[in-house]
Design a protein around this nucleic acid. Structure first.
Lengths: 231, 231, 231, 231
DNA sequence: AATGAATGAGTCTTCATTCAT
DNA sequence: TATGAATGAAGACTCATTCAT
């Protein structure tokens, strides 16, 4: 029926908005329900508990992120290095457009950390482990990375990336840089003492360094967007 | 008197241990007191509230981190690139030896992010803003970064780092890589599908990439620790 | 359904009883819930906090008091002086039958005192100012007084009260006497040294004095209840 | 030693000031100590506990009030009615100059109320009953009243007050009016709907009514201060 | 599917009071 | 007398979750 949106989706959207505004901890289930225009009880019909809801949101975040990776791979006429450059820009945008999804992804990596550690596993909230969405995530969280690694491999094959680089390690390094970026953003924006650089300058410098790190012998198929005058 | 430790320190140590084991949220003030061998009320004598305690812990984390930076700078006979290499290893170790401190630092950067954003500032827990330790942190959090930038500058001066690099941007990139590392570690360790690399392999690959990124024309003053055979 | 009383009312009744027995300070919200036969959380569902609950109780107190005033006005065949006499007796009874309500009313006057004073306003508990019932009280607390003033005016019109009296001032004086009564009751009842009068004697003397104060030229429409032999 | 004020007095003064500003409940013993310029522990050397401190303050309040009564009695050349008029003005001023003392007196009357009631006695804070100052108060609280009754008697004797009045009842009525005054003040000051009179107008009206109530056949020995034009 | 009243475990925090020195 | 660190009982309040309807 027109106007009758799927309730599950409605709840997820409400949660996303509220988590963005107030954070996970500070958001009450009642707020989510109100925002979604339904009753508190109904949220528990669609999601087992608050953690389950968050895991569902995280799952969606990974789906969206994977879509970004796929779109880069779908674009024709780009070599591996260009794809990684494109990808980096997209992740950058993603982290700004969907801060909650991005944070959910990072947080999931933390959970994963504990999940894989014998001692830390016990500290994990049992509700997370029970969530069906958590188990879906265990299955799919590697996909974006796999696609990224694929891009590096392709770059090596097409000569745009140095052949001696190990694809997995290389992509992980880029991935961690992208994640670290969001975390250090705050330190940059702060009106600190001596150090002061603009976010935009950093973004471009960041991209340039990445290219220096990866560049093979083959020229880019078309001129790069980023100016090198920053360095 | 032996065994008569400073109470403030005692509480901080207890908190560090419990935050490591159970996390900030899950740790109750009463547990902290019990762990420190004092009464609940006394924790409130030394720290205004739970947030204040956490800010004090974060302050200590930054102090310790800064000490790592300083020690690197104090070491004689190393050029800029070698110092950054050394520093990276130390941060790496720090994040493993003191996971709570490291996490506190990263979390503070999040808080800083909100603090510098007009809209997000309102969402911050007022108790954090009231904490005297938070304000101390505002004053000192830039010091490690300043020291890091100094190392890059020195590297450029001594020729171990490419002269065209902009010190601030370069160090921020390294810094964000180091932070991203901890977050992505989980994804690596997970017994995933296709992708699988060891943490150690990544660490070395990470260092190698960093050097490629930075290397100037001058040879290292002494053989590098990291083998390049990984790539 | 029989036995299924309105919960809000149930809580209010429980609070009234406990405030009577133990006082506001000494009564814990949990006790109120237990007394009402419900859970602690539910009291917070119906009343924002303890102060809000007390303000709701005070509101009810004013409603009941106003009802006493109205009933006096409704009684036919009485002149103004007789109505005031009747009213005084009713207030007297009210203060004995519903000591908590009466005390709540007096306490509200204290709050009002602070509320209207620029410097004192800041000392008021913010929870009181936030209470919706407090704001209702601001709207209605004048009603009993208005009705009382009306009685004096009528007495002047019908000649039972001296025409030179100013209704507002006159009624306020009676009102303050009635309030002061409850406070001084204790001093009277105490088995003191020389001074000793019975409460009942005082009540009658009080009424007699009041009449002397007010009496106009017109005779009472019927013989007064109070004997003058006490003086 | 000059400048070395008696500590007990120092504490009492500090308490008076803080109770005035923040109220009894909201004032912490630590605040009192700080305000008095001594340590927290020392306050417990001079006063057994917080209630004891408050009882001491109440004792002082009664002493001061009694002094007002005595001074009125000491004034020569005034008849009973004039003395009561004078006394009323003094009490009025006292309640404004020393609100905390006045409130302490009223509150003591409440305590007395409970103390004399078999059922209510059990609810009284045991710490109050233990206070040595409370027992002193039991001994002396009647003194002001005795002096007031004395004034009425004298008025009857000198003809300024109607001979048929019963001194005890008459004075109690005046006393309760004076107490009620402070409580109703708030209702008057409030910017209410229809009813509005000024505090000053009420004060004068109050005095006038009192005189009407008491006046005997003898003229005042000198012109009364209060204008009768208000009625 | 849907509601929202009802539950109660969970925790922070305050502050009067004590006591070793 | 004097200090102030140390204690611990007490209580308000929140919110995820359940369940009768």
């Amino acid at each position: 029926m027109a106007g009758e949106k799927n309730k599950e989706k409605l709840i997820l959207e409400a949660a996303t908005q509220l988590f963005t505004t107030k954070g996970f901890q500070a958001t009450r289930m009642e707020d989510v329900a109100k925002q979604a225009g339904i009753s508190k009880g109904l949220t528990y019909f669609y999601f087992k508990n608050k953690e389950d809801l968050f895991m569902a949101l995280t799952k969606k975040a990974f789906d969206l992120l994977r879509e970004e990776f796929r779109e880069v791979l779908r674009s024709k006429g780009k070599n591996g290095l260009e794809m990684l450059h494109d990808l980096t820009l997209r992740i950058w945008d993603f982290s700004i457009q969907h801060p909650v999804y991005y944070q959910a992804i990072i947080q999931f990596l933390d959970v994963l950390n504990s999940y894989t550690s014998a001692e830390k596993k016990a500290q994990l909230d049992p509700l997370i482990l029970e969530s069906i969405h958590f188990h879906k995530l265990l299955d799919i969280h590697h996909e974006p990375i796999r696609l990224g690694v694929q891009m590096v491999s392709q770059g090596i094959k097409d000569g745009s990336i140095r052949p001696e680089l190990q694809p997995e390690i290389t992509f992980y390094t880029l991935w961690s840089m992208a994640i670290g970026y969001q975390k250090t953003g705050g330190a940059i924006a702060y009106e600190g003492k001596e150090t002061k650089i603009s976010l935009e300058a950093w973004k471009n410098g960041f991209l340039k360094l990445m290219q220096d790190m990866l560049k093979g012998t083959i020229q880019a198929s078309k001129p790069q967007v980023v100016q090198t005058t920053l360095f």
